[in-house]
Write a protein that binds this DNA or RNA. Structure first.
Lengths: 221, 221, 221, 221
DNA sequence: CATGAATGAGCGTTCATTCAT
DNA sequence: AATGAATGAACGCTCATTCAT
């Protein structure tokens, strides 16, 4: 746990010396468009300044939207965070799934998937960080994390079944697919964190090295 | 990132005897005992309800101590969090280090270490979660995480050098020790999270399975 | 120093209708009106209970406004105090300056000015005391008084130059204008304090007596 | 009012990085000695850091005395402040009275008194500032200043009667002795504040100039 | 529907005061 | 009598949420 995680980023640190609220357009958007607009701003703010600092005010400002509008489209701050996480998780699932050739042998699919995940650190780093932040900070009233396995594991669940197929087709050694899947996830998380923290490292190379480590560990033949 | 993390536990969901605790015992403890008491309460509250919800009020209440006492023993909330993390990290290092027979071949040491880490989920689950939370949430003024690699990776750094030795002695295959170490850490994090979330799973069995997966992936002979 | 200063006034010694103000009107005002409202409340509270006791809570309560509103219109408590002082000082400058006929001989101007200052104790006693309190209590971070000579002496500085003119035109005797000015200021402060503390005394009569004392001391011919 | 008062002073700004409470002697003193010790420390702390910053903790530390001891010898912080002010005021009365030759004509006594007061700014500046601070900040529960005229005007009351004598003996012109006394006090306060703020000015010279200004104003012959 | 001023609960922190030693 | 650890009320301030416009 507490795995050597990444840190903040400068970007527009914005000295927050608000000069003037220079009139706003008062555009009318559809509910979905508004929600998307706000969630996108949320991702940016969370990625930039972290979960705690992502106040409703900051998000509304980033979205260039009146503060009160948030409560028209989301029940409360937690709801906004939850929906944003789901939104990002689904986006990732689509992103990765669509680029995968699931007809290849399991080890090859694993290699492909890791490559795609690694490239996400360069194309969707905000989304990755935001998702990480929300998952680690959004709690239910009784203290449990709200985004547990059940919620977005589904997004990557296909890999789990992948291991079963690999074993069945003989391309992977017999083993507890649960442990395989959890370790797979953990290796990816560690990679993402490491790559974020080390921009000088080549993601593709890391992914390739990790892929060989894993498929060998999975007993690929 | 956002590694499908575990969630909290019920424990004492705050019974609703909230009428009035009008007096308190006024016990006098040594500075070290008080600090320990407060840090222990901090661990509990953080583990139960997360970093953000672990307000000074909540921690003082959990410690059954006047709120103001916290500032007699800690500079501020951040100091309390930092010291608590260090406290737990040192405890872990002692715990794990002392039980390791570093003279055995690298693969055996890995197997031992994983077994010990796994058992921590049953003996020190609060400490694990608290350390994770603090490491992921305690920032310096300029936005960086305060507990970075440097601070507590040291506790597990011996494993990193372990890979180098394993390669040198021929018990592990040649590979990027950085990737090996990051993946090792990620696999452990994932295991800890999973075990915390699945109390029905046998930690020793999980650890054994994971150990074989990893040492095979590391090219053990 | 510590000049036998006046004391407070009864006014509304807080009636004990302190059960519950469960709702509030929620009026919307312009920024300037709100600031004015809050500063006015600040003046009242400071005059009544002193600088230290003029907590944000007390001021908000006196203004019949939510506590948090203060920080929408002022950076912090110090900013509120500073702006309130400036506000009052400018009000006084306008008040006094506009009524002065500066073309008259210096002794006559002094007589006029003292009369006007004396009448302020009856028309603006709260403002006088509040300004006094703020000037004596508002410090910068390094411990200096924030409202020093420079800030509001300017309001009365015209009197200083007045002495020089008086000497030049021969209506006042040659003397150290610094001592004259400091004494003038001190005499006024003492008068204001005395009149505040002695409502039965006629301000105009006191002012007339003092004026003769001073102009004679200044060597008026 | 708000008489452009002096500001703080550096002296031992003390970074307050408390290293260690290196044991204390646990000496037993008489009640009066203890009270004196604490009040002396109070004067120093108030003069150095101002009334508000003169916390009980700071005073106890400066007195090298346990915090709790304060409440054995004073009812509460206000009582300590009040007694300290009285203590200083009486000290001043003795100081000034004893050096005065009251048999001289009134104008001469005034000249002498001013000279003595002015020299106090160099010999007792801490006491002057502390007295000023307490007088301006110590309030009763209902908001009035606790140290009003009655409390320490007595210390200087002899000057008041002095004016009457001067008028009787023909050395001063007939006038309202009340106004004369108040102005006298105000002129002294202003002088003290000015001298404190301007260490480069020669107190004796200032006092001499002021004395001539005043005795002329009082109609001295 | 959109805006942002207003609200109030809660937080971190300080400090006068109490009291076990 | 003296000490200083422990208490708890109050403070300045932030921010999610409401609601008049």
């Amino acid at each position: 746990m507490a795995p050597v995680s990444p840190s903040g980023r400068p970007r527009e640190t914005a000295s927050s010396t608000d000069v003037a609220p220079p009139v706003r357009a008062r555009v009318r958007l559809s509910a979905d468009e508004r929600r998307e607009q706000i969630m996108t701003a949320a991702v940016t703010v969370i990625a930039d300044r972290g979960y705690t600092a992502a106040s409703a005010t900051a998000i509304a400002t980033a979205a260039d939207v009146a503060k009160g509008l948030i409560w028209r489209y989301f029940d409360d701050r937690d709801d906004l965070m939850y929906r944003t996480a789901i939104h990002v998780a689904m986006l990732f699932r689509d992103e990765v799934t669509q680029r995968l050739d699931l007809d290849r042998p399991a080890p090859d699919v694993i290699r492909q998937a890791l490559r795609h995940m690694a490239s996400l650190t360069r194309t969707h780093s905000d989304e990755l960080r935001a998702l990480d932040q929300i998952a680690n900070n959004l709690h239910t009233a009784d203290g449990d994390l709200r985004l547990s396995v059940n919620d977005y594991e589904a997004g990557y669940r296909l890999q789990e079944s992948l291991f079963a197929r690999g074993i069945a087709e003989g391309s992977l050694a017999e083993a507890d697919t649960r442990v395989m899947a959890v370790t797979y996830q953990g290796a990816i998380d560690a990679m993402l964190g490491y790559l974020r923290y080390h921009p000088e490292v080549d993601p593709q190379q890391y992914a390739a090295t990790l892929a060989e480590l894993l498929v060998r560990g999975y007993g690929a033949r």
